[in-house]
Write a protein that binds this DNA or RNA. Structure first.
Lengths: 352, 352
DNA sequence: CTGAAAGCGCTAACAA
DNA sequence: TTGTTAGCGCTTTCAG
């Protein structure tokens, strides 16, 4: 059993005294230095265990200039995607013996600034940030090694970043839609101000152009990245005249779920009347009825890689400064298979 | 604009030199001490801004013995309930100028121990923990001010805790079920080893006894606190002979969602054939079809109160050491209303 | 192989 | 009101 004085946490001096050596010897023994008699080392280790010694990382940080802590600033830890990212980051950091200070910015630039200041004062070794604004130039505000998460990072070539491969994701989605016979899906996208929207749209266009199809025919509706945003966008889509089955590719699972609600509101059935493809891979999609078919972002991997990138940054190893993680298809039940039910449709659509 | 030497972060000495005072004067000025000429203070503040000074919290922590950091050890930050708790804790901590080190234990005692050790080494001022095990006696392993979250805390009168008020929650659920004409709901509960299960069951019994009903008639199935656990439990429930409508009260939303799947698997309809009431209030329940009616735990509030309790603990203010947060009903669509459709059922059931 | 001493940045006690 | 000094716990020279 460990003796634990109620009053004070044992320091290395307590260990040294108990082992009958100087504190520098004790430190060396505990650090696993080579210039130590095996016998001395053993005595020190035993003494440390006996007094319940635990190295004070604050003190270590002061001396070494490395606190062993990393910061994470994301929009909202209660959002399932960001929670996944946080989990990945946390696991990777813990594996390296580092700890993670987590903050939510709520997409508020002031909150972000406050949190970054707190991180700097805490002397974290670096920070992983999903920057609130797409259009800041005051990069000074970071003032520490940083890795960005998300598409806004694109504009800052000096800062390394990790994100999902939107191009690949969009292709995956579009190919899957086509394989099911949906050649001209409507798009439900985020607000025009968001860089991610432009990236998504660009990928769609490229994909169409490569196949000699005209992206101009695609219906597009915008909305906030929320359930309500998706619901309204779908409402507008359903109000438009159309023939036959409607397929929708939403830029975000929440919007896709909202779209699904709008379909139900309109007395229609998904996937019979309307097919919906999402993007994110949040767990809620699994329990929706029908299950939401979606392109899943590897949130956990993104978090892990961000931490790895941050370590590279901290150690001045400027390796791969721009990482795009591949997404994968999660097939559930929200897409009708027109290629089986009505093969003539495909041919017809192809001719357009 | 701030001058920022690329090499070294400015210390209080840089500020002092620039202001032409000693470092203690600079410190006093920055701390807002009273024994300072307004003129001096202003000079110091200006100098601090000019060099871009930011107080080193590691150093402050060393001197003061207070690191300004709190630890949070929960089963899984990627679980929506715990993410809510984390969010509440984080917000409350930030409001007090503290930061939060977040760790996930995955219900693994070893991982928990490792994380607690890390927190102790980081010299956090205290920790909020959802203890993995219900049956530990080595309370020493904490070795710092602690607040527990969850029911296992009940066994440790010396440690303050915050949790949801299961008794109130169960009453709320049972009353609601009864108001809809479901007098003898089947129960889907967690593993027998969990203290929370016993608490839940006890509350059900009390409620029944108070109303002169016999709790012995209630069917009970156990399972893991997962979707699959709930699905299997519901499968077993459906295999039992029964007359008329089946109502189920699940101890956890994931299980409730799994139960809903099992109902679908059996070719039955919720809520027409089976009514399901959940417990937790996770967002997925909103998108399920039908929407899951559930008793929502105030995750965010729990996190906030835990931090407040931890501050009390740290400052040796042993106020309210046991806090139970009230839950609320989230009515969605998973409960049939038998009281309207078939009032004779209620009378019949009441006679049993 | 081991010990003594310096210093990371800060604040508080003591002096002036 | 301000300056000087000590020391929080640790690691790392530099001597021995």
């Amino acid at each position: 059993m460990v003796e634990r004085s109620r009053s004070r946490r044992p320091t290395i001096i307590d260990v040294a005294e108990r082992a009958g050596v100087s504190k520098s010897t004790a430190a060396r023994a505990l650090a696993g230095s080579s210039n130590i008699t095996d016998e001395t080392r053993e005595r020190v280790v035993k003494a440390a265990a006996a007094v319940g010694y635990e190295r004070n990382h604050l003190a270590v940080g002061m001396r070494s200039g490395r606190s062993g802590m990393l910061g994470l600033v994301i929009p909202d830890i209660a959002n399932p995607f960001w929670a996944e990212v946080a989990r990945g980051a946390q696991d990777r950091a813990a594996r390296a013996g580092a700890s993670l200070l987590v903050f939510s910015s709520d997409w508020d630039p002031e909150a972000e600034a406050t949190h970054l200041r707190t991180l700097r004062r805490a002397r974290v070794d670096g920070a992983i940030v999903n920057p609130v604004s797409d259009s800041f130039d005051d990069l000074d505000r970071f003032g520490m090694p940083c890795v960005f998460i998300g598409s806004s990072a694109e504009r800052y070539p000096d800062i390394s970043s990790v994100g999902s491969d939107i191009t690949q994701a969009v292709r995956l989605g579009l190919d899957h839609l086509m394989s099911k016979g949906h050649v001209a899906p409507a798009l439900i996208l985020g607000p025009k101000s968001r860089l991610a929207r432009a990236r998504f749209l660009r990928a769609v266009h490229e994909h169409f152009v490569e196949r000699d199809l005209d992206p101009g025919v695609l219906a597009v509706e915008d909305g906030e990245y929320t359930v309500e945003g998706g619901r309204e966008a779908m409402r507008r889509l359903l109000a438009q005249p159309r023939v036959g089955h409607l397929a929708v590719f939403a830029a975000n699972d929440m919007m896709a779920l909202g779209a699904m609600m709008a379909v139900r509101d309109a007395g229609l059935d998904c996937p019979r009347d309307v097919s919906i493809l999402g993007f994110d891979g949040i767990p809620s999609g699994e329990f929706a009825w029908p299950g939401l078919t979606t392109i899943a972002k590897p949130g956990r991997d993104i978090g892990e890689r961000a931490v790895e990138g941050l370590f590279d940054e901290i150690e001045h190893r400027p390796e791969h400064r721009r990482i795009y993680m591949p997404c994968r298809l999660l097939e559930r039940g929200s897409l009708a298979d027109l290629s089986v039910a009505a093969p003539q449709r495909i041919a017809g659509a192809g001719r357009n």
